[in-house]
Amino acid sequence: MIVVEELYKSFGKVEAVRGVNFRAEDGRITGLLGPNGAGKSTTLRTLYTVLKPDQGRAFIDGIDVVAEPLAARGCIGALPHGAGLYPHLTARENIRYYARLYGLPGETIEARVQAVIDEIGIGDFADRRSKGFSQGQQTKVSLARALVHQPNNIILDEPSNGLDVMATRSLRDLIRKLKDSGKCILFSSHVMQEVAALCDEIVIIAAGRVALHDTPDNIRARTGCDDLEDAFVRAIEKVEPA
């Protein structure tokens, strides 16, 4: 479970996040939706402790990310935006490297690496060097790498960026499978359809603030728009008058 309370973060004069609050439950997919520059990545980066918030707190399974960043990171599988692999290592070696760094016990590592390879379905190219991988293959291996330690919380920053239709579909299936196994999934996107197709909860962020947080159905009802895209635009306009 991920809890975010009154998060603030500025870069110099730019206030990227200005008081973000939300909660992402286990067994649900929570989508962070917002236009480019709304503060989605900054919020996620504070959660996986690459950035320190100026104010506010965030908890991963009850662990404070500021006070105990190492412990918090241990409960997360993170797929940052544009995550890359080591081109001279095979997919399996890339995953194994992370398994070791996660501190998995030596004797279980090979079995875990194989399990996650099967789970994500990358067995076909698991022993090829990552150099020539397609964007879809890269994303899958990056995801496998982030899941090798079986984290309870999974944070994905724009995971479908640069993927074709088929790759996007299989990524969605994977995310649903993870949800069914009871994980807490938080992902960001600026693509309305993707969020609509996948999420149980939507958190719309605009100009560093939460504009709306509800289920897709409730959002449609509350904004009076049948189409989620219209609802999205309306919610954002309330925060940032055009």
Binding site: L70, A71, I76, L79, P80, G84, Y98, L101
Partner: peptide
């Protein structure tokens, strides 16, 4: 440049 730094920093290591 490769995009492998951020995931690396997400790991529970110093």
């Amino acid at each position: 440049e490769r995009g492998s730094l951020e995931p690396l920093l997400c790991l529970p290591v110093m």
